[in-house]
Design a binder for these strands. Structure first.
Lengths: 355, 355
DNA sequence: TAAAATACTGCAATCGATTGCGGAATCGGT
DNA sequence: ACCGATTCCGCAATCGATTGCAGTATTTTA
């Protein structure tokens, strides 16, 4: 019942009494081959459902039509979107995608990258772990002639094209939006300083304040150790119970923002109105929460698409300059949590000229 | 700078003035080879960082150490957990995983499965699309001698091992839990009847009612056309505005439950207390919502792990009976939304004997 | 000392498809 | 009838690693 026996060129050649080389050429209608022979070979190939052995092709051409994809976490809205976009794009061009994750652990990332190198991927898409700095393991792969494209979490130590989120601009817009809605005492719960994205968002936050003539308040910037809901809750409580409470929060991620929101709701603080809130990433969570969370969409799917296109182009022979940086613009997703601040006496004048 | 030139056995053999075959045997310390030769070869291999060409090995052994994984959706909490578990398990055994998605479209699934077949995976893990019935494309792969394991969304038309969620029991427990907390008028927003999982959950719901001596009410079972938040909202509104409102909702998925919750909050209906609510799947959403949503965890990661283990075993030569069904038990995640019903006169007697 | 056993090593085929090159057959031209 | 051109096809090498088998030393045994 089992039909392991795949038809090979040899089988076809033998049945037709011709050589394997002729059969091979006939299948691609080489001009050297008589039309009649071509016809006969193609007919038999059709009849036997001949499919060239891809392993043999890979071996000979030194090309597998597989690309590798390594991200810190698969179970993560943003990254799974990247994966989805990458796979869709790769599949369209006849490539398959091998996926692995680093769990933000350098050792795991090395293992994953090595596994991919040895399994013979043609190229690699990677979003590096928080622990990765130099990326020698990735260098090694590049030395083997495999093109690499970095996505989102990148390091400049690797001379590869990058497809990244414009975190700076995303943060800038988010904070600007809060300001335009009347909030001026804006806190920021940021990520770890070794993560470039976290810094960019922080800088965007600062710039937006600066451009609005607002002096940033050191105490309102908190470093999240964990990026989770509890952390948002903790810092919100700390600041709002303190002597100098802010009137808005811009959080590194939606999850943190929802922690803030939980505290605000517990304290029966009106959101929006008394306090404004912005997240980042546009998780499903943000859409469902109540009030619905305003946030910044990073277009993960598109990042996957663009990065894969670059990789495929470079695989197709295009010479992509190794310092090409593609910045994908974010867009503001304005829902409820960032709505207009209720005007009170002491802030009324601050609103003049804004809209 | 680029070092495409990989060292081959031939290089090593030439440098040592021995034959390729000797070099090959030396590397695996074949008893025929003199210790001295073995030493020399291993030393040189080390020096040149010789790595056997995996493409050549694959070609010769007809084995790629790649497995395929096809799910309906990558960007989905449950499936991305499956993927994560599968990859972790496969990697541990030196396998890489090629991932693709069907988008619940049969054509896409066929394309994905064919792509994997042709790229030479050793086996396949699949969660079929809603449109897949017979799965001839998967049959084809099985005929080519590739083992297949089905996960979660399965069809009995394919004679493969299955690793599935015990949806019946999960639903049973969820509904039982609502009953134990005093709810008796329990509605169910179910999924499409062609999806086996949806039916199992429905049957579990019915059984739990029956075992508690509750007669199911036809009108309280609604078929979700889309599995989304709006659908939950819509049906909740319809039932609660109707003449015979239920006092609890068991939903096919957390997302639908959150739609219900939104309506309940809008109507200032107390949750829990007046109305109890259970979701299914344990998305991140459920944890964050307020009140936090009680739900059923499906252990996606473990499903990925178990299915992959079966596939690897069968790849390692173990004969897995083709009708082996591994049912992964769910577990109840009791949070807030299913809390005890407030006792009112007309239902008080119904609670006697329950706890 | 010759024969047999032992210890090493290499030749060549194999996996399946591709391709440079040379050879055979047919045809046309003179 | 002979020679060059054209048409069509196959041999053999190649990719890199593996392995059955045969062959050559070297040592042991009788």
């Amino acid at each position: 019942m089992i039909d392991k026996s795949k038809v090979t060129l040899k089988d076809i050649a033998k049945e037709l009494g011709i050589s394997v080389s002729t059969a091979s050429r006939a299948l691609k209608a080489h001009p050297d081959i008589a039309k009649e022979t071509v016809r006969a070979v193609k007919e038999l190939a059709e009849k036997y459902q001949y499919v060239p052995n891809s392993l043999a092709i890979s071996f000979r051409k030194k090309k597998t039509f597989n690309i590798g994809l390594v991200v810190p976490e698969i179970v993560h809205h943003f990254f799974s979107n990247i994966i989805s976009g990458a796979i869709a794009t790769a599949n369209q061009s006849g490539y398959n995608v091998m996926v692995s994750q680093s769990n933000d652990v350098l050792q795991d990332e090395k293992a994953a990258v090595n596994a991919m190198l040895h399994s013979g991927v043609d190229g690699l898409l990677i979003s590096i772990s928080n622990e990765t700095v130099l990326g020698e393991h990735i260098q090694e792969l590049m030395h083997a002639g495999k093109p690499v494209v970095q996505m989102d979490k990148v390091t400049d130590h690797l001379k590869t094209p990058q497809v990244i989120v414009d975190d700076f601009d995303g943060a800038y817009q988010a904070v600007q939006h809060l300001i335009q809605n009347g909030y001026r005492k804006i806190a920021h719960f940021r990520g770890r300083p070794i993560v470039k994205n976290a810094n960019q968002r922080y800088f965007g936050y600062l710039q937006a304040l600066k451009d609005a003539g607002i002096t940033p308040e050191k105490d309102w910037v908190k470093h999240c150790v964990q990026i989770n809901e509890a952390e948002g809750y903790r810092f919100a409580k700390e600041l709002l119970e303190g002597p100098n409470p802010p009137d808005a929060f811009f959080c590194i991620t939606d999850l943190v923002a929802l922690g803030v929101l939980r505290y605000l709701k517990e304290q029966k603080i009106e959101v929006p109105g008394e306090v404004g809130l912005m997240g980042f990433s546009n998780w499903k969570l943000a859409e469902i929460s109540s009030p619905a969370l305003s946030t910044v969409d990073q277009h993960g799917y598109e990042i996957g698409v663009r990065a894969t296109q670059m990789l495929l182009d470079s695989l197709a022979g295009a010479s992509i300059s190794s310092d090409a940086i593609t910045e994908i613009k974010t867009n503001l997703v304005i829902r409820e949590s960032s709505g207009r601040k209720k005007v009170q006496q002491q802030t009324q004048e601050a609103l003049v000229g804004n809209n």
